[in-house]
Amino acid sequence: MASNQASLQDDQSRHCKFLSYMFYQAVRDHKPVWMLEDMRTMEYFYWEENASLRTYSPSEALLYAVVHNHLPYAQYLLSHFPEEALKVPGEHFCYCPSSAPHLAMAVTYDRRDILGLIIKIAHKLPSLNSYINRAGCFHLEDGKTPLHLACELLRSETVLILLGNGASPRIEDSKGLTPLDVILEQMWDSKVNVASKKLCLDYLLLFMPNPQFKMRKVLQEHPDHWTALLGEDKFNSLVGNTPASLYLQAMQTILQTLPPSHFPKSIQELPIPQALKPLPSYGKKLPAKNVHH
């Protein structure tokens, strides 16, 4: 009798594990939202032995939607469960309680449409007031903010989206590096993707009057290298020899007064010639990326 009961439990466990994998696979295959919600709320077992019966939370489901770029499902979860969807997932996902894994994942996988949805929800909820500046685990992720990650990955448009929506370029990671340091270190280490690095740098400087950063000493010790790379005016401004250009100072002042929740519309509505606006390429539709992982 005991043997039959154990066999039945094993069969049930295997079935629930199979259902768990099916949900992950269904999100990956971009199945319809109604089907995913039916599967999400179906009870299953965790892969670990002796785990209790449970369902996927909106937060866990959103992580899968971000990874596999399932935009309609991400829209559904964020509109129906805004706070629950952006909670840190359960202990089995190994995220620090104060981190923003969905935002970090959207940056890492370059899911800009979902990134925009997440940021829009964060602006509406008082409980997520500082969400965009949450750092990852200091032990596993070096305390990087989403902006650090975007700079590390040279995602210039994402850098701009984050900055315009209130991400601070002054926060340091566990190594004491600001996002500006991250870009300058990459410029120092390699001559690859120079254009992307310069664009990220320019966006950071727009939102960073009087920049303070760890790499300043390296710039001061190698003026010829950095002058050739950055240009004389930008180099002298970064090391503190001269003030920033009047144009940059003016744009920094303007950007500080604009509410992040209205970015980039507030930029486009400025009563100045289009050619003088610092973000002329923002919002242009880029080719769709349908790579599934």
Rank of each mutant, 00 (worst) to 15 (best):
F263E: 10
T227A: 12
K265N: 11
S261Q: 15
F263V: 08
T242Q: 13
N241M: 03
D233M: 01
L270R: 09
G240M: 03
T227P: 02
L219S: 12
L258P: 11
L229N: 03
F235A: 12
S237W: 01
D224C: 03
W226R: 07
V218C: 11
Q256N: 07
T242N: 13
T253Q: 13
Q220P: 07
T253N: 10
S266M: 07
N236G: 02
P260R: 14
S266Y: 08
P223Y: 00
L229M: 14
H222W: 06
Y247A: 14
G231H: 07
V218A: 14
P259H: 14
T253D: 13
P264K: 08
L270P: 02
T242R: 14
R216P: 09
V218D: 12
E221K: 10
S237C: 05
L248H: 01
F263M: 09
T227G: 06
T242E: 10
T253R: 14
Q256V: 04
D233S: 07
K234Y: 00
Q220Y: 00
P243K: 03
A244Q: 08
L229V: 09
L238H: 02
P243F: 03
E221R: 10
T257A: 08
Q256D: 06
D233H: 02
Q220I: 13
N241P: 04
M251T: 08
T257L: 05
M215K: 11
D224M: 03
A250P: 01
G231V: 05
R216V: 02
G240T: 06
W226D: 09
S266Q: 11
L270Q: 15
